[in-house]
Design a protein around this nucleic acid. Structure first.
Length: 821
RNA sequence: GCGCUCGUGGCGAAAUUGGUAGACGCGCAAGCCUUAGGAGCUUGUAGGGCAACCUGUCCCGGUUCGAGUCCGGGCGAGCGCACCA
């Protein structure tokens, strides 16, 4: 019996042993102050739900952990921290649901997560753990708020905001999905409330422009671009007849101005009041009352358009003709100027409005459809002279203007600039860039978050809490339940909010809202390396050494939330002189999602995987490795319980070959050649996060060892242990120790591979005739074309296809020969 | 509608980036070993054909000696944005 006998190893014992050893030896700790080759490996921290760790968490963390361990083996000083996003609505809502107090429940959940995470075998430096709900963390979250305030980037204003009646708080635009709360799915209402905002809108251009230089997943960059929503166009002024006023509209299609036959204002537009005629006043007021009460979701998604005429008339600055001014619900106050010029001939929405919803008024009010663009489709010639909304959407390069005076014949692109330039001369237009991105609403009318560090004083006004007085501590209150009043639970506690003004000492009142959870996580990566410092949010030297983050891994659901906010806060802190970099994450990779048997995992479907069960049955190493083997890391994968056995079999075989490895005699040169090839492949793939193919390569090598039908030599097996180490760290340590090493395998370095030793002495070269593969010949890699041809013609099954003299021969060295006859 | 990513065996997937399609694993089949096996080992496994061979990477075209890969058009899926002017 010479072949490798797998010996089922005992993961429970081995894994517990090594986790203990790592903790005892401080294996996972890094010298933060003195590291020579710092590498900051970051994973998105979890919020500690009571349900415990989800496979999705483990999938994400394992991917980051492998990258971190791999870099350590390459010789970097790797810092990989982890912590808890424990403040915020998600934690508070769960406490409410089970009737617990978040201040008591959160530490329990954190402890449970900690236990599960420790079993997973992550190379985390737990000394640097952060917990956003702890005072020594949120003190500095408040400090960040104050820095932004100091820089004029935080302001308070009354505005129409998104109100979730279930979470009983306002939400940022980023937290509203299709008109509903992204967390609970409740339809969001519009409320008019005074809130704190951050001027993220001022950073739109920078947030957009920097994306090109970032090594990030394309999906993430594209999501951010969409969210920032840059559009170039112009503001055009339409004077209102009989008033000393003009309506400013934003358009991306100034070229269509000759077809602008009416204007539309958002119902809540401030000019509506002044320009509405007496005859239309009642109708307008009734309409306004009706639409502003509507919740956001029906304003934004219902496609039926309604509107009412204000009675006012404006002058089209291009044609000089009168155009009626309407108000309608399809124009949004939040975007552009809250007013549009309607071009029903070339805009689908305007076309719909005119045709479907205002037929009774059409003639009376002159809502006419004019064609000003002629569509030219390649190969089809010019389109018919029918004004159609489609012409707007399908503007091809050949389309040109008609019925537009001196601009007739210009292409759409030419006309855009020409029309703006012309109108600009008489002060009727300005080129403008608009963004969809709005300022970040950070106030929350909730309990479980950092109180916003602001005090209101009748004498001094809005006073920031002095930094020396931080934190503004969140008090323990039992009635923390939010209500529908739009006022925070803290506002019920006069003993807390009544304070002396920090400026004049007079009676003053604290801000009673807390800040958005996303502010907690928008700077946590700065805190980790300085987590044990109580005198600064982050140390200058430490920060300069470790940041920006070298590798960040997380879910793409945060593309426009956490990732955008983190970039903004980083830029703001740089502008405030606190740090010297613009972008927090040099490389970001969005991992995929784990589904199960083709469907998303959900409690209702009952297909949720409990990692604990699998870790107990198969071991953390096998579970980690299986998750990574499911498919490309950035695509996620379909979890099938059966599949894990293949990975476990591999680990058992590895353990068997380590146990049986012989030291006498020499290693087989053929096996060693494969080994050098595998070292290269696993290194390349692991660096590229192609974990599935890295694992496949190791399995292939294991098969080579087995098929050798003899006990493997130490030299053939030991380097494989180093390759496996990032994936199955516990077993790798056990194997490494078995080979007699005292130190951790993670201090052993990555095995070197020698290109000369990796090279095959003979290779198969495919032989094609007329481009069809007809056979293969085995020759030395540097065989000449003549040699290959000779060998090919000696093979009857190839030669029979070669009829006559070859006309041309194509030889790709070491790959294939193509004979053309 | 706009943007991004993608489409390959029964299944999850590979393919050195234009060069032998289906590595690796699951599943399945046959065999060995077993009192037994949801264990272990061996072999086979894209489809068709007795075979020589033929056909095959969503569909249609193109470039090329050669296309899963590049180009044009279409169909389909997933994600993001969306009455955004």
């Amino acid at each position: 019996m010479d072949t490798i006998e797998p010996i089922a190893y005992d993961p429970t014992a081995i894994e517990a042993k090594w986790q203990r050893t790592w903790a005892d030896r401080g294996t996972n700790q890094v010298d933060l102050a003195g590291a020579k080759r710092p590498f900051y490996s970051l994973m998105m921290f979890p919020y500690p739900s009571a349900e415990g760790l989800h496979v999705g968490n483990l999938f994400a963390f394992t991917g980051s952990d492998i990258s971190a361990r791999f870099h350590r083996l390459l010789g970097y000083d790797v810092f990989q921290p982890l912590g808890y996003d424990a403040f915020g609505i998600h934690s508070e809502n769960y406490a409410l649901k089970i009737g617990a107090h978040p201040m008591e429940l959160t530490p329990k959940n954190v402890a449970n997560f900690q236990r599960q995470l420790e079993r997973a075998g992550l190379m985390v430096d737990w000394r640097q753990k952060v917990d956003t709900s702890q005072r020594d963390y949120y003190r500095w979250t408040q400090w960040v708020f104050l820095q932004l305030h100091k820089q004029g980037l935080a302001y308070k204003k009354a505005a129409a905001v998104n109100w979730c009646s279930s979470c009983k708080t306002v939400l940022a635009n980023e937290q509203v999905e299709g008109g509903a709360c992204e967390r609970c799915g409740t339809v969001v209402e519009q409320r008019f409330l005074e809130q704190w905002f951050f001027r993220i809108g001022d950073y739109a251009e920078r947030l957009l422009g920097n994306l090109d230089g970032l090594d990030w997943s394309e999906v993430t960059k594209s999501a951010q671009r969409n969210w920032i929503g840059r559009s170039e166009g112009a503001e055009i002024k339409f004077d209102v007849a009989g008033h000393d006023a003009s309506v400013r509209v934003f358009t991306t299609r100034p070229d269509t101005i000759f077809g602008a036959t009416y204007l539309v204002l958002a119902p809540e537009h401030p000019m509506v009041e002044t320009i509405t005629t007496a005859a239309q006043r009642d109708a307008v007021r009734a309409y306004q009352a009706n639409t502003t009460k509507q919740d956001v979701v029906s304003r934004k998604t219902v496609l039926q358009k309604t509107g009412v005429f204000t009675g006012a008339v404006a002058v089209n600055p291009a044609t000089g003709t009168n155009v009626p001014v309407w108000i309608a619900d399809y124009v949004l106050m939040e975007y552009g100027t809250g007013a549009i010029m309607a071009v029903p001939g070339h805009d689908e929405r305007d076309f719909e409005f005119v045709h479907e919803l205002a037929p009774a008024f059409r003639e009376d009010c002159g809502l006419e459809v004019e064609q000003v663009i002629r569509r030219v489709v390649a190969g089809e010639g010019e389109g018919a002279d029918t004004p159609l909304a489609e012409a707007y959407a399908a503007s091809t390069g050949a389309d040109h203007l008609v019925n537009s005076a001196q601009f007739d014949g210009l292409s759409v692109a030419e006309a855009k600039t020409a029309v703006i330039a012309w109108l600009e001369q008489n002060g009727h237009a300005t080129p403008v860039v608009n963004y969809r991105l709005h300022d970040w609403c950070v106030s929350r009318q909730r309990y479980w978050g950092p109180p916003i560090p602001i005090v209101y004083c009748d004498a001094c006004g809005t006073v920031p809490v002095p930094e020396a007085q931080l934190p503004v501590e969140l008090p323990f209150i039992s009635d923390f339940k939010p209500d529908d009043s739009g006022i925070s639970p803290l506002a019920r506690h006069a003993e807390w909010y009544n304070v002396a003004c920090p400026s004049c000492g007079g009676a003053a009142r604290r801000e009673t809202d807390v800040s958005d959870t996303f502010l907690d996580s928008a700077w946590y990566f700065l805190r980790y390396p300085s987590a044990r410092r109580d005198d600064v949010a982050f140390d200058r030297d430490i920060t300069a050494r470790w940041l920006p983050v070298n590798s960040y891994i997380g879910g793409n659901e945060h593309a426009v939330l956490h990732l955008l906010y983190s970039r903004f806060v980083t830029m703001a802190l740089k502008d405030g002189g606190h740090i010297n970099f613009d972008e927090p994450f040099t490389r970001f990779r969005a991992h995929g999602l784990i589904i199960r048997d083709g469907a998303k995992m959900s409690k209702t479907k009952g297909n949720v995987i409990n990692p604990d069960e699998y870790v107990t049955e198969w071991g953390a190493d096998a579970f980690r490795m299986y998750l990574m083997f499911l498919g490309p890391y950035q695509d996620g994968g379909d979890f099938r319980s059966q599949g894990i056995s293949g990975v476990r079999r591999f680990l058992d075989r590895l353990w068997g070959s380590v146990r049986d490895a012989r030291r006498d005699g020499d290693a087989d040169p053929d096996v060693m050649r494969k080994l050098h090839q595998v070292i290269r492949k696993v290194g390349d793939d692991t660096g590229a996060l192609a974990y599935n193919t890295a694992i496949a390569a190791m399995m292939e090598y294991m098969n080579v060892l087995r098929r050798a039908e003899r006990v493997a030599h130490v030299d053939e097996v030991q380097p494989l242990v180093q390759l496996v180490a990032p994936f199955a760290p516990h077993l790798a340590e056990e194997c490494w120790a078995h080979f007699g090493h005292d130190r951790s395998v993670f201090d052993a370095g990555w095995p070197l591979w020698d290109p000369a030793l990796a090279e095959e002495s003979t290779i198969e070269i495919a032989v094609q005739v007329q481009g069809k593969t007809r056979g293969r010949v085995t020759l030395s890699p540097d065989a000449t074309q003549e040699e290959v041809l000779q060998a090919a013609m000696a093979d009857a099954s190839i030669a029979k296809f070669v009829t006559g003299e070859p006309k041309k021969i194509i030889y790709v060295k070491g790959r294939l020969l193509n004979i053309l006859v």
